[in-house]
Nucleic acid binder design. Structure first.
Lengths: 302, 302
DNA sequence: ACCTTTATTCAATTTTTTTGAAATAATATC
DNA sequence: GATATTATTTCAAAAAAATTGAATAAAGGT
């Protein structure tokens, strides 16, 4: 047979697997069970492989069935994206917009902008996520998000637009109860090595992980978000550089104190970044608003 | 309408675009033109957008049509891959196997193995390609190849198997007519800077490009393959490190001479690498043969 | 053992797709 | 500029495919 696979058959497979039975799937698809029997059997005949094991009462996927299901899901997703693209093409508004914020940035400035967007009641479904270190680039490149806020470092390969939103200043901060708080003057490498370092793990799933500002400590505690890192350092669990704009409260109230460190950490520029290809009206709107938003950073020098 | 796109409609779209008319596409698909009119009109109705511009005699795609075609192709490709996967699942032999050779390696040892495979007349379609520097990893990660030979350096993220095939030794070589050939003793950084460096460009399309062994020359000539680099250096266009096993002939015949260099380049291990997931019989066969093949390298120490 | 749930078979029915002939329109040719 | 050619659409009829519902068989729960 020329073309065995049809989207309808993949949908049926998916439904049966998800709901656990032909009967339940039939109901969900507004059909009668024998219709599914027909569709499934046709696909099995065309493919030449049984997709379900019928030795028991409830049909369960064979290994071949799992294979078809898995790749079939990707195909169904692609058709949904295709239909979404057409909708965007007509209205200009993308049906879905995925925004990632790097964990170095505060959440509230983003939320303000999101609030402004939501009251406009556009036909756009928003998804927010948080990334760390190189993870923002990774998510963008891997097409898991459409827009990232607060990415830093080198531009990876690919066609991206960027816009600087300010400079990040890092200070070496410890809890006042931490032994390093007692050090007068500059903290040395030897002193650093005595205490655990708290680092934010790279959330990359595809690109190689970056390790920024790791000094060789005896112990490293890896956390997922900047919030966790700040909290860990406030509790005196370890030490490390923190973005100044995130810890103004902690510094003012004395929950953290700064020290000079032998290895200074230079300021780095934070960017908005998005894919070049055909931005929808939603993406354009967010790029405009987010680049004018006050992220409480140092204005970008260049 | 719930689900507008069907694979059949995408195939029709693709055929009309490729062959330039409804009539030609109909013939290719063993149908009658009015059947295509029906299919296309149905898709247009369901999507709510005209896909073809009919103001002229021959129908041409509208921008929206191009969008559907482009994404549709990806979907059709995925369905073909799905059917291929099933075939592999049944016979064990993958219908397609894509092998990349890093440009540091000789081509002939691979060709010998390929020859041995072809005489077995397996139902496997082979594709060979050449990659450079980080490009092998890139192609593997991006699923453009199934197996790479001669990748070096750090393992990127992802699930890969690797097997060492030997160590690469690099020698600093220049044409006998090159000014640096006259230097006695060790070539210094200052001397190096005087002459163009020949480097093999990273063929990566997704991962960040690696730059190995670039010393800051006034001029850099970037080439795509090791063969080009060797040739450029034989012609005295520039200098650089070359893999010793690739230039034995040139060294013996005096077309290249070696010199000591202030920056020595350590040996590096070359690997076979492939994706973990479900190797077919073809991939397994190649991994076995290729890892036993004599690549004329130094046996791996570790 | 009995009842319930589940999947399949099969003939009848409905829906969808395909066809071929005729109509319409745009290019090409003389 | 008239005419032939090529290309697409329209429409009713025919063919193919999908869906239904009733009957059947078999598995699991109580």
């Amino acid at each position: 047979m020329a073309h065995a696979v049809t989207l309808e058959a993949l949908r049926v497979l998916e439904a049966i697997h998800k709901l656990g039975s032909f009967a339940a799937a039939a109901e969900a698809l507004f059909k009668v069970p024998s219709a599914l029997t027909y569709t499934v059997k046709k696909l099995e005949d065309d493919l030449g492989v049984p997709l379900f094991d019928r030795s028991r009462q409830r049909a369960v996927l064979t290994p071949a069935g799992h294979l078809v299901l898995e790749q079939g899901r990707a195909i169904l997703d692609a058709t949904i994206r295709l239909e979404d693209s057409i909708k965007q093409f007509e209205s200009g508004w993308e049906p879905k917009l995925r925004i990632a914020r790097d964990t170095v940035l505060l959440e509230s400035p983003l939320m303000e902008v999101v609030g402004d967007f939501l009251v406009q009641n556009r036909p756009v479904e928003l998804t927010l996520s948080e990334e760390s270190v190189g993870g923002g680039w990774d998510a963008l490149q891997d097409d898991r998000v459409d827009l990232v806020i607060g990415v830093t470092g080198e531009l990876p390969k690919g066609n991206f637009y960027t816009r600087a939103i300010g400079e990040l200043e890092f200070v070496f901060a410890v809890a006042p109860t931490h032994p390093l708080a007692l050090v007068e003057g500059v903290v040395t490498a030897a002193q650093l090595r005595q205490y655990p370092a708290i680092v934010v793990a790279d959330s990359s799933k595809k690109l190689p992980a970056r390790n920024i500002g790791i000094f060789e400590s005896r112990q490293v505690l890896r956390v997922e978000t900047m919030r966790s890192k700040i909290q860990a350092q406030c509790l005196g669990l370890g030490v490390g550089y923190l973005p100044k704009h995130r810890i103004m409260d902690e510094l003012n109230s004395g929950r953290l104190v700064t020290r000079q460190c032998e290895f200074p950490r230079p300021n780095i520029t934070a960017y908005l970044a998005w894919r070049k290809d055909s931005p929808g009206r939603g993406l354009s709107w967010f790029v405009d608003c987010l680049s004018q938003q006050d992220w409480q950073l140092i204005p970008a020098s260049v």
